[in-house]
């Protein structure tokens, strides 16, 4: 009964410390910092697939600060043979794998209240929110922006133009390296973003 009330009014009393300090940050005005994020997953169906790695890098005043980056590899029970060729992550391959909860905890600390940006970001957000839900936590509170929307604006077109990250990199003359690693894609996306916000 009390839990039900809490859920109704969103009072996060029994959420873990890391969530509470994350939520706390949103009481203040959002920072200028923008986090560009990308997840590698076992597949493209959020209900059954899992996050394998998360990579992110931050921008401030449209400058990428390499030091301000984030990268984790998540230990998952399931692996799908068909996605391995894409992301190159083989199950339990490395000792640097961390649990999903640890990954989420670190991610929230890294994100803070910054705006999140990504290419087809809704998918990544959905994956993260599902991970949060599994831990009994609410959805991400950050503002979200998609490069695809920015690209449409940039082109002055109203309908969404569906371009792949590869296509955008080619259009903006960004050398494609490290595609399909979470951090590599995040870095490429950040570079695309730099060009999109400048008129």
């Amino acid at each position: 009964m009390i839990n039900w009330w809490r859920k109704l009014f969103g009072v996060p009393t029994d959420y873990p410390e890391y969530w509470r300090s994350y939520a706390e940050l949103f009481k203040h005005p959002a920072p200028e910092r923008i986090v560009v994020l990308d997840c590698e997953t076992t597949g493209l169906r959020p209900c059954e697939d899992k996050i394998l790695s998360i990579g992110a890098v931050a921008l401030c005043q449209n400058r990428i600060y390499i030091k301000d980056q984030f990268s984790v590899y998540v230990k998952q029970k399931m692996t799908k043979a068909e996605s391995v060729p894409i992301h190159g992550i083989v199950g339990n391959e490395s000792e640097n794998l961390i649990t999903e909860e640890e990954a989420v905890k670190q991610l929230l600390a890294y994100l803070g209240s910054s705006k999140i940006l990504g290419h087809h970001i809704q998918f990544d957000i959905k994956m993260i929110n599902l991970a949060l839900k599994n831990l009994g936590l609410p959805k991400l509170k950050n503002k979200i922006q998609d490069t695809i929307d920015l690209y449409s604006q940039y082109k002055g077109v109203h309908e969404v133009m569906n371009k792949s990250l590869d296509e955008l990199c080619e259009e903006f003359n960004i050398p494609k390296k490290d595609r399909h690693t979470a951090l590599g894609d995040a870095f490429l996306t950040a570079q695309v973003y730099q060009r999109l916000v400048i008129i």
Binding site: N62, R63, I64, Y65, K67, Q194, R195
Partner: peptide
């Protein structure tokens, strides 16, 4: 050194 680098885009 590379970790300290900032990447700027200048139109």
């Amino acid at each position: 050194l590379a970790e300290q680098v900032r990447v700027d885009y200048v139109p």
